[in-house]
Design a protein around this nucleic acid. Sequence first.
DNA 1: CGGATTTGACCCGCGC
DNA 2: GCGCGGGTCAAATCCG
Length: 186
Amino acid sequence: MESYPMLAFLNSSSSSAASSTNYYNFPFSLSMENSNAVNGLFGTPTAAQPEVPASEYNGHDDHQNKGVVGYEIEAENVEKSKTNKQGERKIRKHRYAFQTRSQVDILDDGYRWRKYGQKAVKNNKFPRSYYRCTYEGCGVKKQVQRLSKDEGTVVTTYEGVHSHPIEKSTDNFEHILSQMQIFPSF
DNA sequence: CGGATTTGACCCGCGC
DNA sequence: GCGCGGGTCAAATCCG
């Protein structure tokens, strides 16, 4: 539970932008290029908490001094057969929750998202925003919520895998980092 | 004008 | 069966 895979990922993979200053551990953004890598990385059960409902974050924050916390949430079965009530396949989607510290809610990871909903969360004065990837055929979703207790903590939950390249250049990665203030574990 | 956002309604699963 | 909470839709609105 103490070892965070994204650290290894940052070291091994494209850390060009982060090479100059590597005191921050930025989980996604870069990794979104090849979600498979993320899938493999997080496939290893490192987290002690298998599935933590997002609501758990609010009242119970056990993130002592970790700037970034990432762990896999394996959803049992996310079946959304709203329109057609036929026999929908029970596709189990992988969900990855990243807990970061940022002043802004929108952490631009290079993909284009369209906001499609916003709901108030129980035990949280901040709402949760729902985004969907606008690429045709790409049903990747993400939701962003802010801890009411720690205003500076933002939890981003990704759901699904992108099946297309990134649209925006990764040059703005440093810009993304400028938006964030991540506190190292030590 | 076109695409993104806002926002209340609607839907659905679940627990009582 | 009903109410609640979470997730999504969609019409109105905003904005570049």
